[in-house]
Design a binder for these strands. Structure first.
Length: 414
DNA sequence: CAGCAGGGGGCGA
DNA sequence: CGCCCCCTGCTGC
């Protein structure tokens, strides 16, 4: 062995790798997970996410489904966008103003190199109670270590570092309130409790693999459709996801109940109205949206924006990905609009909102929202009598009618 | 039969 | 114009 050992080195490996990664991300090729933030959907690669964040790594590990949709609450889309750039490109430029928020988010998500000390993968793996396969193979060829480094951003001293890194995210309370309750955190405690932990609200929804094909492969990262629930729930829908079948939502990752900060599910009371897909256009002042997201549940009737299942416009990719090198986030810059009429339908002058996952078209955002639930698996309408849950109000109603019917029948008038 | 999901009509902003 | 309610067709058990 030792005699004939040759070191083959791919000089441009790193560059090529990143470039390809960038393209893959841009085209959403091979993406196997989706991150939803403020109603925006970011198709991502588990590999990359896992590599750059232990937090995601754990989530994926505990989420057996092929294409989980991870809904992050309390995370601003801008931040997520920046973080994704950071993870995929190894660097990102951000405005000073956004820095604090970004770091906070990074901390919550345990993004290596930003919030979590970038450890040597090999050593890291040792530390882990259970070595995960995603950790890079321990052995590498002499020279290449630098190049073969997974995607960890370690080598990349983020541009941001200079100016920004200053704030040691060390103890920023992750995302204020709600985080505390997140069961999710539990998942990680095993590994690091020292670190912040509970990332913002996280919810993992299983997504059946059926559409991925169609949707995932070609989807442009965007899709919009916010879905929230219009549910005021006549039936007192109580959406506490908590009690729903846990299986539905990735094992433990999904903090069922905890999600509801104040007790009301974000997605629950929301009414779709509040977040018109078109709203995305960027009118969402970066600043204010988050509010919704963060606060949301507090009042109960207030924000529903917190939990949206929307799709991002494909332009997003274009913007983010293309602008890659140093993507700078300027308020609107990052987020183009959703695929709503104007964009999507420029195609057909008639208004149509389409689901970028299955390409189905709908005349109204509300219809699209409803439809999106079929993809997200969200079932905001719960039967107060039995564990039944459904994604459509009417279905719940008809279900309830059955209960009534059964009751009246069982005990005919007294 | 129950549940899911798309479509249509009515109504309010 | 958009949302809500309801109807209806399809699918799986």
């Amino acid at each position: 062995m030792e005699d004939g050992l040759l070191s083959l080195k791919w000089n441009n490996h790193k560059i090529t790798f990143f470039e390809i990664l960038r393209v893959l991300r841009e085209k959403a090729n091979y993406t196997d997970a989706t991150i939803a933030v403020e109603g925006k959907f970011y198709p991502v690669h588990k590999l990359v996410m896992s590599t750059c964040s232990e937090y995601f790594s754990e989530i994926f590990e505990r989420t057996p489904c092929k294409s989980p949709v991870i809904v992050l609450k309390d995370v601003r889309s801008q931040d997520m966008d920046a973080l994704l750039d950071y993870m995929y490109l190894g660097e990102v430029n951000v405005n000073q103003n956004d820095l604090a928020s970004l770091l906070k988010t990074a901390e919550c998500l345990r993004i290596k190199g930003l919030a979590v000390p970038d450890e040597d993968p090999t050593k890291f793996r040792k530390g882990q109670s259970d070595d995960r396969r995603e950790s890079p193979p321990p052995k590498r060829r002499r020279h290449e270590d630098s190049s073969s480094q997974p995607l960890s951003q370690r080598p990349v001293s983020p541009t941001i570092s200079a100016s920004s890194k200053t704030t040691p995210p060390s103890r920023t309370p992750p995302l204020q309130h709600q985080t505390s309750s997140l069961p999710v955190s539990q998942s990680q405690d095993s590994v690091h409790d020292s670190i912040v932990d509970p990332p913002p609200m996280v919810k993992v929804e299983m997504e059946e693999a059926d559409d991925p094909d169609d949707g995932y492969s070609r989807r442009d990262n965007s899709y919009d459709g916010g879905s929230v629930n219009e549910g005021d729930g006549d039936f007192g829908t109580e959406l506490s996801k908590s009690e729903h079948d846990p299986d539905n939502y990735g094992s433990g990752s999904f903090p069922g109940p905890s999600i509801q900060p104040g007790g009301d599910l974000p997605w629950d009371e929301g009414d779709s109205s509040s977040f018109p897909p078109e709203g995305f256009s960027g009118d969402l002042p970066a600043g204010q949206q988050p509010q919704g997201a963060l606060v949301g549940g507090g009042d109960g009737d207030g924000g529903l924006e917190d939990m949206l299942f929307l799709a991002l416009p494909s332009e997003l990719q274009a913007t983010a990905a293309v602008g890659v090198p140093p993507v700078t986030f300027h308020s609107t810059g990052g987020f183009p609009q959703s695929n709503h009429p104007s964009t999507a339908a420029s195609v057909a002058n008639k208004r149509c909102y389409w689901c970028h996952l299955c390409k189905r078209e709908f005349p109204f955002p509300s219809k699209l929202n409803e439809h999106m639930r079929t993809h997200t698996g969200e079932k905001p309408f719960a039967c107060p009598i039995c564990p039944f849950r459904t994604s459509l109000k009417w279905n719940l109603k008809s279900h309830m009618l059955r209960h009534q019917d059964a009751m009246t029948r069982s005990k005919p008038q007294t």
